[in-house]
Nucleic acid binder design. Sequence first.
DNA 1: TTGAAAGCGCTACCAA
DNA 2: TTGGTAGCGCTTTCAA
Lengths: 352, 352
Amino acid sequence: MPSSRVTITDIARYVGVSPSTVSLVLRRKGAISEATKEAVHRAIDELGYVYDRNAANLRSRTTQAIGLLINDVRNPFFAELATAVQEASEEDDYLTHLLSSSENVARQSRYIRSLLEMRVAGVIVCAATGTDREALSPLLEREIPTVLAVRPLDVEGVAFVGPDNRKAGELVARHLLDLGHSDLAFIGGEPGNPARDARFGGFAAALEERGVGLNPDWVIDIRPTVTAGAIAIERLLERSPRPTAIVCYNDLLAFSASERLWAEGIAVGEDVALTGFDDLPLSRVAVPPLTTVDLKVHEIGRRASELLLDKLEHPGSEPQQVFLEPDLVVRRTCGSGCSPQNRPTQISEGEA
Amino acid sequence: MPSSRVTITDIARYVGVSPSTVSLVLRRKGAISEATKEAVHRAIDELGYVYDRNAANLRSRTTQAIGLLINDVRNPFFAELATAVQEASEEDDYLTHLLSSSENVARQSRYIRSLLEMRVAGVIVCAATGTDREALSPLLEREIPTVLAVRPLDVEGVAFVGPDNRKAGELVARHLLDLGHSDLAFIGGEPGNPARDARFGGFAAALEERGVGLNPDWVIDIRPTVTAGAIAIERLLERSPRPTAIVCYNDLLAFSASERLWAEGIAVGEDVALTGFDDLPLSRVAVPPLTTVDLKVHEIGRRASELLLDKLEHPGSEPQQVFLEPDLVVRRTCGSGCSPQNRPTQISEGEA
DNA sequence: TTGAAAGCGCTACCAA
DNA sequence: TTGGTAGCGCTTTCAA
């Protein structure tokens, strides 16, 4: 069995047909008789032929591939998004090239270039923190079909799919207010980050709506690293008076906040209420299980993929902006209102 | 500015040199005068040229790309591995094509085919559960440089980089024994899974070494899903007598086990000791912070990448088997021996 | 230090 | 239902 230099021409010769016929069989195009189809496939097996996508892409000047640029695969939220995009695009026979910038804008730019050089048909982008219009211009100038996911960006005429962050902020705030809290803190994220601003905006609006004051001492801005929650809690504990409920910018941050409170002997869910945003799989098995907002990542990924593939089939359509409705998920960190169906036993999937 | 149909020939004409000269400039090869280099780069900017990697790959019959096939990006352990591989291969100017099979063997096979069609130079594989020799044969038959990572497989002559799982098992068992425990349970993973068997093997050996009996009632086999820990704990609690220490197959499993124990009113770290394997970033901020074994994922990724790239530069070298030394990380779930440097405040990176 | 020409493996296009 | 031929955009090879 010859190594990987078997070409379509070899197959053609072997079967006794023309290269174009073999190509048609390979692509399931045109009307080819069952007999030749079979013969071609047999030859492929026998000669150990492997399709050369580089040659095909070059000649056809198209690819059946999209790029997915995400800010960090290590964040479970975005890993889930990536999985959803991969699955959805696979259904339409597109391959997803997944690249993780690790929040590094320079690396992100290199990856955009790579994607361009590969001639991907389109790109889905969860932009790294600090990305500006300029950074995306290689995509926009060449009019590569692009959809922004999760992280909105101040760029005109680009499609977007993400959560309704403002609504999410309102949801937690109202829940906490309904539980009788009126001393609410908001920790994590930095002003200027659109997701943080929208969540905080919804949060603040809900307070105002109920005539509850917002204590600026209880708003802690901090870059959302895995350790940030703990630091924010430390700062918060220095304040006097202290809040009775703490809204965290995301679940990851809530975990470290929760640990810090526990370490200080403050019982989360009893002495203080705590919430996150995202609803990671891990949030169900946190101790105590975290009350949070399901941002529908999987659906975001699916919709982003659908939007992009749709754009590829039907160019020239208006760029859509999709904001998915979030769901409040009440668990144990708020002390009450816990519904029994949120018990961990109910969880059904996810290999460890 | 013309769209992406600008070719090397256009650049050549614009500058007044030949296409081969432009090609040489692009690849930083040959001896080209500074003047022409500059002129070429200017032309590239002005005409908006984008290198066509498909054409280059076709002609040169090689690629500067490797494939990374992982079983699940949603598992933070493997997300970290992916990041490490990406970073390391980037240093050698290789692009990593990251594909996550989600533990689906059929999908994994499709991805292997895609990688082959892309003509990647080599592949790193974290095999999906259930993968056999046959599944990797497309790679092996064509002698594509391959290195298995994390998950060993019963395949002759293939390079491997992973943790020393047996050692890891010994480490936790000895720690627990040192703390005075003699009633130890082992939960999660299934016999036949090499990682589980090695960890369990080391665990059992350590008990035997100290003359401590192993109660089969306290060995719970279960597929390591996110919910498995809780289920295993439920089964364990039905037994009588009960163990005083519980070793979990991995950190994710330990989280749900921990939550379940908490829900039952059993204080982890006081009433019972609990440990995991992996040392995920989240394990430091779990409540209580999880005692576990650092399997050195990042280093595994880096070494796997180095091994592969080395193989690409120097073919014909013997396939190496690298087993990295694990480190015990003592935190709070064992009740004692907690060193202050494991406080969450010490964590230094990772965007949430 | 640069150029001319051939050709990588495939698909497009037209013809039969 | 199939075949012939040109050529996608690059690199290789050899020559100047």
